Measured scan of single mutants.
Amino acid sequence: MPSETPQAEVGPTGCPHRSGPHSAKGSLEKGSPEDKEAKEPLWIRPDAPSRCTWQLGRPASESPHHHTAPAKSPKILPDILKKIGDTPMVRINKIGKKFGLKCELLAKCEFFNAGGSVKDRISLRMIEDAERDGTLKPGDTIIEPTSGNTGIGLALAAAVRGYRCIIVMPEKMSSEKVDVLRALGAEIVRTPTNARFDSPESHVGVAWRLKNEIPNSHILDQYRNASNPLAHYDTTADEILQQCDGKLDMLVASVGTGGTITGIARKLKEKCPGCRIIGVDPEGSILAEPEELNQTEQTTYEVEGIGYDFIPTVLDRTVVDKWFKSNDEEAFTFARMLIAQEGLLCGGSAGSTVAVAVKAAQELQEGQRCVVILPDSVRNYMTKFLSDRWMLQKGFLKEEDLTEKKPWWWHLRVQELGLSAPLTVLPTITCGHTIEILREKGFDQAPVVDEAGVILGMVTLGNMLSSLLAGKVQPSDQVGKVIYKQFKQIRLTDTLGRLSHILEMDHFALVV
């Protein structure tokens, strides 16, 4: 994948999101292997301009796509893939009243899908469409860049269908997702969380590099694949309309690839034109409109599966009536509230959605109805927002919020430890010299600072030695090549209790 991002070429006709291997024109390309080798690009942008032909009021008969309808489940399912879809609609009884809503608040519980998330729908649909058009064949390999849930859905379907599955996901995604993927037989590649989507090191860039190296491999490409919004247009939206008897006044959905909100909203605009569509985008993402909503100094966020630093091709923002931004604290607070007060075992993005819903639905009156999409299960986040310690460490809970008995030293300040200034190293000294210094002084790690004293990161003896043994660096290389740029900081005025929580999850903390 090139470091400079080429513009994806656009073909003359058809839909841009065809499933299957992508040609340089962004659509299915038939021909000899030699032709494909000559024409197939190194990668295709996940934010390529959409060429979708959908228009409100256009006859369904003019759609270029294969459409399906929700099917009634048999008493005995032939395999677990038949437990994807037909998820329950559940009334939220307490939270709406707590925040003064007059309307009825309903939750579409997508964590009841077989793999635990709304992404099971698009995973199965992308595979079925690729099999139907002859792209996927027995023994082929599926590769997908994902925040985890699409990966789980694909790995689940691949396990049943017999495909090899490789999932490329950023490091910030939970260990629970990784464990589930491994249990399903998927191979996992992790990428830096802070890598831009168009960087060769991003999950998108690495996935395309693997595709170019592995024979008979395919990126189904949830960011561009029409099967993504079509899955929701054909099934999720129809289920909502049936469950609500066609009567709903507002739908609120958090947005990642945009397939969920695009597919549902398009069908609702056709069948229930008075329904307002509300999009939820986390602070630090750029999906919301108008652009002024996205202006923030924050560039990272903890909530998973929603928000991006690019506009995915499948996201149709014209069908969203209003956007709201959400933050991590309210997302996790509301997710825990949904679990504790409503018994809905949902993930953090569901918290984002409901946090926005109780604001947006203030305009609705008694007798009206708001539906929220709860995308995934708490299963993926047992060591994250479900953990009091994690919430404390991230600053989303305060010590006084917890009532468990603490040891005698818990409320003492870090400054009472009488710490001395640490050994520091410059980023320009060599790895070999740094190892000598650390061994001589008896230290395992040291902060790396520039000549102005600005902290650049941390270097550890173990990481340097393993990097040297693996051949990633040489003793003569500058130590700046092996620094940890993500590390926890703590102030002298913070409590030892807070430091204790940090050290339970990290090997060190830097006192500043």
Rank of each mutant, 00 (worst) to 15 (best):
D47E: 11
G256T: 00
A107D: 07
D249V: 01
N113P: 06
Q243I: 03
G263N: 00
G134E: 07
P6Y: 10
A71V: 15
N93L: 13
K82V: 10
L156T: 04
E171L: 02
I188K: 05
G96W: 08
G205L: 09
A155M: 09
L105N: 00
S19W: 13
I261Y: 04
P229M: 05
K102M: 08
G153V: 03
K269I: 04
A183K: 05
E128D: 08
S227D: 10
G85Q: 01
E4C: 15
F112H: 00
A155S: 13
W54R: 06
M126K: 06
A195Q: 12
S175V: 10
T146R: 06
K119N: 04
P170F: 03
S217W: 00
S61A: 12
H232T: 03
E128A: 01
A60I: 11
D249Q: 05
K39I: 03
G274Q: 11
T260F: 01
R132W: 05
T13D: 08
P41F: 04
T236N: 12
D249K: 15
L105Q: 01
S3G: 10
N212V: 10
K247H: 12
N228E: 02
R276I: 08
R125K: 11
F99Y: 11
S27A: 12
R190I: 01
G148N: 03
F112N: 05
W208G: 03
D234Y: 13
R224S: 02
S199I: 04
H17K: 03
V255A: 06
T135L: 12
L241A: 13
S175I: 12
K39Y: 03
D86E: 13
A231D: 09
Q243F: 06
K247M: 15
G57T: 10
R121P: 02
G151V: 00
G259H: 00
L268D: 00
T235P: 03
E201K: 07
V178Q: 04
H203Q: 11
V90K: 03
N149F: 00
H218V: 12
P33Q: 14
N194A: 10
I214L: 07
G246M: 05
I166P: 02
E128H: 03
S202P: 08
D245M: 08
I264P: 00
I127F: 11
G26L: 13
K271A: 11
N212W: 08
L241P: 01
D221Q: 04
